[in-house]
Design a protein around this nucleic acid. Sequence first.
DNA 1: AATATTTTATTTGCTTTTCTAAAAATTTGT
DNA 2: ACAAATTTTTAGAAAAGCAAATAAAATATT
Lengths: 215, 215
Amino acid sequence: MTTSEENYLKVIYHLSLVSPKGVNTNAIAAMLDTKASSVTDMLKKLSDKELVSYQKYQGVTLTEKGFHSAKMIVRKHRLWEVFLVEKLHFSWDEVHDIAEELEHIKSESLINKLDSFLGFPDFDPHGDPIPNADGEIKKVTKLLLSEVELNKEYRCIGVKDSSSDFLKYLDKQKIALGSTFVVKEKESFDDTLLVEVNSKHITISNKIATNLYVH
Amino acid sequence: MTTSEENYLKVIYHLSLVSPKGVNTNAIAAMLDTKASSVTDMLKKLSDKELVSYQKYQGVTLTEKGFHSAKMIVRKHRLWEVFLVEKLHFSWDEVHDIAEELEHIKSESLINKLDSFLGFPDFDPHGDPIPNADGEIKKVTKLLLSEVELNKEYRCIGVKDSSSDFLKYLDKQKIALGSTFVVKEKESFDDTLLVEVNSKHITISNKIATNLYVH
DNA sequence: AATATTTTATTTGCTTTTCTAAAAATTTGT
DNA sequence: ACAAATTTTTAGAAAAGCAAATAAAATATT
């Protein structure tokens, strides 16, 4: 499979999770920063290879085979992200683009040895689950920080928004994967939270709280 | 720079070490398993980018800029090989093809952090020197095992032949980078050596001995 | 030394892959 | 049903490659 095909599959996979009955050509084009006409071309090619089922004008879905391939690409991407953050000490917001390249390295033994080297992690540094070698995905009930009960302890397991700005804000506040939160007070007027993080009290806006997953 | 351009540069670099006055089109084609006509095309392109100096029918040499780029590619390749062998426990003979892909990942901070993670190694698992971030290369006087004095201790620092068969033979004999050798006897008839390796005595043929670098 | 032959390198024309702009076709929303 | 939005088709671009024809250089022969 070419790098380009893999990128299409991965994007279709992510979009399928939101619109399982069929992914639009334009949505794919927007994600890949390309043109709808290019997408149509590629969909035909992927359809010929039986990785997607595609009828023109009707959107596209992954076949069983395509779904598995997509999960393997996601697996590689997320394992490399763990490597970059945990071993090479990159910060959250720097790893995506590099992992985007690394995910296309073609070697099954490489990725399985990397998995083992990293201790078979279940989640990546953004809190997203890492499919195992068989494509199975661990599910965890994720709560938004904005939804939790007062005075209970929660652990940060990921982010909803993974934009660079947001991740940089978190770094500045010393909030990382695994940070523990206890919400002490909730301001009913604007839903601002008073939160204890790393044994310090900080104020967290509703916008931030609706983008942090905890458990 | 594209992957293809990088591969050409790297091959020209390696061939330059042997024929510094100009590398042949056909030699490049043979190394890259492609056709001479494709090479001519690419040489024009690299020449336009001032990475090589090229006059038709006269062979090609690297410019200062091309030489530096080539060393950076070699640097990446060899650092990834160290990673694969030391951290992921691949064997000598398995790493080349994977490193061939990894060397094209474009991120300077990635490779410098990897270098640091690996402890700034000077040599790769085959004993070849790793250029540092400035392109400087550590030189070591390499001796062939066939040339050493009797009853002196030497350490294995690399191989001359890096074919899969030879590397597998070494694995079987438990000879690795860093193994210490003491040549006890040399059979004058066929130059077979009686060598103490890892405190065991083994017989090593002249063919093997002329492909092992020691120091 | 001059010519013929072989080897090496380049040019030409064409293929495949991915992408694009513009035109045409289809579906959707009101 | 018709305008708007979406999608596909068409025609053509750039990158990398190849086969066959041609050109230049190197080597052998007389």
